[in-house]
């Protein structure tokens, strides 16, 4: 707290006898005490949360929030207790994706209680601070970072298996604040798209991760390929002519629904970047129109269509991710 006011003592003994703390001193003491309590809570909180994963990207709009929400839902679908913290104070969009709108904050005993979204995922978003969802908060500098610290320390998450943290785009102050406040972060998932510029940006975010001193758990390539869907007779083979002269085949389900993913951009960019930078590749997620259904009911594809292409792709990413987490500390179970 380098910017805290310094009190000046004149050196002249006060005539009020034994010193009474001035209001200023009281305020300072209170502040210091609050700071200590917060630090203690951070440590306690950290112990109750098994895994903390940050989702970052170099560029905006690549699908961080979609991926963060998807990871949270996919983990919840497998039976984990999951929390999702949306730190994007200038443009929080996680609540909408989780089907939560205009919730406000639920405060009890001086602690903020998360709101429960789809599949029991606990959600805290900076959006809950907004009076009006469409007016972004323009907090700057220390106030913003202070709010983030407070948010992290004062939320009553309970026991969690995973806490997923969604950030604003770019290599800003927020991730730094979080890594400095929250101990034992497992690492960072970097979201990229197949286009070259986004890949370049993800290179930047990987080097940024190094400066944060937090491991990169891997790269996810979002909007890779295009998922088309349709309806025909039940249990019927559907054949599609894909770009590059390839054919894609799929079979419709009992209701006649089918979906298939076509590669439109050149593929494997995320994989190449991952290899080049020697970080794991966690998988590719298809471009899926309506991955998050718009409007107020904001249903994520994983919830609306738990066995569809997107849900399966997310499940694979989660599997790759949990392999990264287990590698660090072998459970040492003998399996016969």
């Amino acid at each position: 707290m380098s910017d805290s006011p310094v009190s000046h003592h004149s050196g002249i003994p006060s005539d009020k006898g034994p010193e009474k703390a001035s209001d200023e001193q009281n305020a300072q003491m209170e502040q210091a005490y609050a700071q200590m309590r917060r630090k203690l809570r951070m440590t306690q909180l950290s112990e109750k949360i098994r895994h903390k994963i940050m989702v970052l990207s170099g560029k905006g709009g690549v699908g961080k929030s979609t991926v963060a929400t998807g990871l949270a839902l996919s983990l919840a679908q497998q039976g984990h207790k999951v929390g999702l913290l949306d730190i994007d104070i200038t443009g929080p969009n996680v609540p909408k994706m989780m089907g939560l709108g205009g919730q406000g904050l639920h405060v009890e005993d001086g602690l903020i209680h998360p709101t429960v979204g789809h599949l029991g995922v606990k959600v805290i978003s900076m959006a809950f601070l907004l009076e009006d969802e469409d007016t972004p908060v323009v907090w700057r500098g220390p106030i913003k970072l202070g709010a983030i610290q407070q948010f992290i320390a004062d939320v009553e998450w309970g026991e969690l298996d995973y806490l997923i943290l969604d950030f604003p785009p770019g290599t800003s102050d927020e991730p730094l604040t979080v890594t400095q406040s929250l101990p034992d972060i497992d690492g960072i998932v970097i979201v990229t798209t197949p286009q070259d510029v986004a890949l370049l940006d993800s290179r930047k975010s990987i080097s940024f991760a190094k400066t944060l001193n937090v491991p990169v758990l891997g790269v996810v390539e979002n909007m890779s390929g295009f998922t088309v869907r349709g309806k025909v007779e039940p249990n019927t083979k559907v054949e599609l002519q894909a770009p590059g002269g390839k054919n894609v085949e799929t079979i419709s389900d009992e209701d006649g629904q089918w979906s298939a993913t076509l590669d439109i951009f050149k593929q494997g960019g995320g994989k190449d970047t991952a290899e080049e930078l020697e970080v794991p590749f966690l998988g590719a997620l298809p471009f899926d129109p309506g991955v998050v259904r718009g409007g107020d009911d904001g249903v994520h594809r994983i919830v609306a269509d738990p066995e569809g292409e997107s849900a399966l792709a997310f499940a694979k990413v989660v599997e790759a991710l949990s392999e990264q987490l287990s590698e660090e500390d072998e459970p040492g179970i003998n399996i016969i």
């Binding site: 098994r50 895994h51 298996d161 949990s322 987490l325 287990s326 500390d329 072998e330 459970p331 179970i333 399996i335």
Partner: peptide, 10 residues
């Protein structure tokens, strides 16, 4: 077949 998940589950 079985896999360990992290250090807390199978």
């Amino acid at each position: 077949s079985v896999k360990t998940v992290g250090r807390y589950a199978l």
